[in-house]
Write a protein that binds this DNA or RNA. Structure first.
Length: 198
DNA sequence: ATAGCGATGAGCT
DNA sequence: GCTCATCGCTATA
């Protein structure tokens, strides 16, 4: 049994709760006619204006970040290091600019499509672990910025899967975030090998 | 107009 | 563990 998560699910006010709750959910993309899916194994929460690691810190509102202020349930995709497309789900209600970064998934369907998009022969953990790798394997790019995550192309379902060893720890790559660097807002299922780094 | 740099990943040692 | 590719975003002027 599975249930597609609704727009209102993503409008929950606590982005940290959502980041944790999304571990073990199933994410599916149907892009360029190719279906790929997997179990979410790693996420991070970014908590809007008050979070020094968040792109919307202090209400920063630019061409890039404006999508974060929309009501929850749409994608925020941006280019990192000029190379990697990083996929986030905007959460909370309008004006709050919270988001959950998807950092890794464990593949379920579309192995051949993922391998082809990644240019990899082997099915090792690097196929879909790490935010840039996940996005590439699932066919997500900046053209999907602002797309609904309650759609045919992109959706998330509750499935009968329970994370067996849920770890809470500090976020990756945000050394500039001063007193917010150590917030335990990264979550991963340590029973999966599809994790970016431990 | 432009300098500085980043929510990374791959390859090599 | 270390280097570096690569370019859009941001702030500053």
């Amino acid at each position: 049994m599975s249930l597609t998560l609704s727009q209102s699910y993503f409008q929950h006010r606590d982005v940290v709760y959502l980041a944790k709750d999304l571990i073990g959910k199933k994410i599916t993309t149907c892009i360029d006619g190719k279906t790929t899916s997997g179990i979410i194994t790693e996420t991070e929460a970014y908590a809007g204006c008050g979070d020094k690691a968040c792109h919307a810190h202090l209400g920063r509102f630019t061409e890039r970040t404006k999508v974060m202020y929309e009501p929850g349930g749409i994608a925020y995709v941006y280019l990192c290091y000029g190379i990697h497309h990083l996929f986030n789900i905007v959460t909370n209600t309008r004006g709050n600019a919270d988001a959950v970064l998807i950092r890794a998934v464990e593949p379920l369907e579309g192995f051949d499509t993922m391998r082809k998009r990644r240019g990899k022969e082997k099915l090792d953990k690097a196929l879909t672990s790490g935010p840039g790798n996940f996005s590439k394997a699932f066919g997500i790019s900046k053209t999907h910025n602002e797309m609904s995550v309650v759609s045919k192309e992109l959706n998330i379902e509750h499935i009968s899967y329970k994370p067996k060893n849920l770890v809470e720890t500090k976020r990756i790559g945000i050394d500039y975030a001063e007193e917010d660097v150590d917030l335990p807002w990264r979550f991963y299922d340590n029973s999966s090998k599809f994790i970016s780094i431990k």
